[in-house]
Amino acid sequence: MSDRNQSQESPEKKAAGIYAASLVQDGDRVGLGTGSTVAYTIRELGRRVREENLSIVGVVTSFQSEAIAIEAGVPLTTLAQTPRLTIAIDGADQFDQNLIAIKGGGAAHTREKIVSMSADRFVIVSDPKKRSDVLSVPVPVEVMPFGKELAVRQLKELGANPVLRAAAKKDGPVITDNGNFVLDCDFGSIPNPKELAAKISQIPGVVEHGIFMNADEVVIGKTDGSIEILKK
Rank of each mutant, 00 (worst) to 15 (best):
P145K: 11
K103A: 11
G172F: 11
V115T: 01
E157V: 05
M213L: 12
L158H: 12
G35M: 07
P145T: 12
K231F: 03
M213I: 03
L23A: 10
A108H: 06
G106T: 08
V24G: 07
M1Q: 13
S65M: 03
K199H: 07
P11F: 13
P138H: 08
N214K: 06
R47S: 12
L135D: 13
I229A: 13
V163F: 11
S36N: 11
D90P: 09
A151R: 08
V137S: 10
I175N: 07
A67W: 00
K129H: 14
E195W: 00
V115N: 02
P128E: 14
M1N: 12
P83V: 03
L164D: 15
T78N: 08
G27D: 11
Q81G: 04
E9F: 13
G27P: 02
E217T: 04
A168T: 15
S201E: 14
L155I: 06
Q94I: 06
I100E: 08
T41D: 05
K130P: 03
P140Y: 12
V219T: 06
E51V: 04
E217N: 07
V125E: 00
I102N: 01
G225I: 11
D120P: 00
V182G: 10
V174H: 09
A92M: 09
A107G: 06
L32F: 08
A21R: 10
V137F: 13
N161R: 14
I227T: 15
R43W: 11
V137E: 14
R131F: 13
